[in-house]
Design a protein around this nucleic acid. Structure first.
Ligand SMILES: [Mn+2]
Ligand SMILES: [Mn+2]
Ligand SMILES: [Zn+2]
Ligand SMILES: [Zn+2]
Lengths: 141, 141
DNA sequence: TAGCTAATTGCAAATCATTCTCATTTGCAT
DNA sequence: ATGCAAATGAGAATGATTTGCAATTAGCTA
């Protein structure tokens, strides 16, 4: 019986185990790299960041790990217009994104009202929202 | 001086001309195929439908025409999770989409409230919404 | 109507992101 | 320490979309 995780490192191992995955050297590095990121890296960028921590992790493993963790709700896959997929850990509370069309910067926001309206609209049509995607492509005013 | 378009056919020609494009046999066929569709075909499906009208149009031209018309706001490109891009004419009033996760069916909806909230949120952050994307991935309840 | 020319087209090759194959390695339960 | 299913890296494969280029054509002008 495992006790409470004693360190960040043990925490990562626990997250992986909880997802039914072996806590490999590579996965620990990828997950540490992603959870240390406060932005939304794509696979290549995440690969670069992971290599800083452990230089022997392949891009293939980045993709595989993201897919596995996505299945288990540990990470979210974002796909903005015409760009390769980006990733973020799913530990922060739900939010949606504003994409600055000029700079490419991504800003997060939350709107309880919008969330409620979405559910309402779906319900009226006989549906229940499993998940959704809301992106605002904007320009500074 | 061109008068009012006399037929559906002339209408298409006019739309193309207004976009600064030559009204080629191929483009007329693609645009007719798309504007006759009441769903959201992807490039291959649109290619099939176009060939019914004119059997000599390449898939490349489908892609090129969609890109040109998208630039001119005549068509919208939709990209749902993990699927190839789909297209729709931009003549209908703005709406967003519900994707039935079980059947793949796409349902359209409009919510003036949500649209307003989006603009409001962006404004508060110093932005103005150029366009957005709202997709509800749902299941029947 | 004929001729001109830049725009357009089809085809094949190229790109790009992502996935798959498979031989080799490794985590971890016993 | 041992065994084996799971995981990994390298490279090939895939699928959607774009691009290069030589041949064709729309839409002027004369
Ligand atoms: Mn985010
Ligand atoms: Mn639609
Ligand atoms: Zn949301
Ligand atoms: Zn909308």
């Amino acid at each position: 019986m495992a006790g409470k995780p004693q360190s960040r490192y043990d925490e990562l191992i626990e997250i992986l185990r909880a997802s039914g995955l072996k806590a490999t050297r590579q996965r620990k590095a990828v997950l540490l790299a992603l959870s240390s990121s406060d932005d939304h890296p794509d696979a290549n960028e995440l690969h670069r960041r992971t290599r800083v921590l452990d230089d022997d992790v392949s891009l293939t493993t980045i993709y595989r790990t993201m897919s596995e963790l996505e299945k288990n709700g540990v990470v979210h896959r974002l796909s903005f217009e015409g760009e390769p997929a980006r990733f973020e850990t799913a530990d922060a509370p739900h939010h949606d994104h504003i994409i600055d069309l000029d700079t490419g910067h991504v800003i997060e926001f939350q709107s309880e009202k919008i969330e409620r309206l979405q559910a309402e609209i779906a319900r009226e049509l006989g549906y229940e929202v499993v998940h959704h995607r809301l992106e605002l492509y904007c320009r500074k005013r």
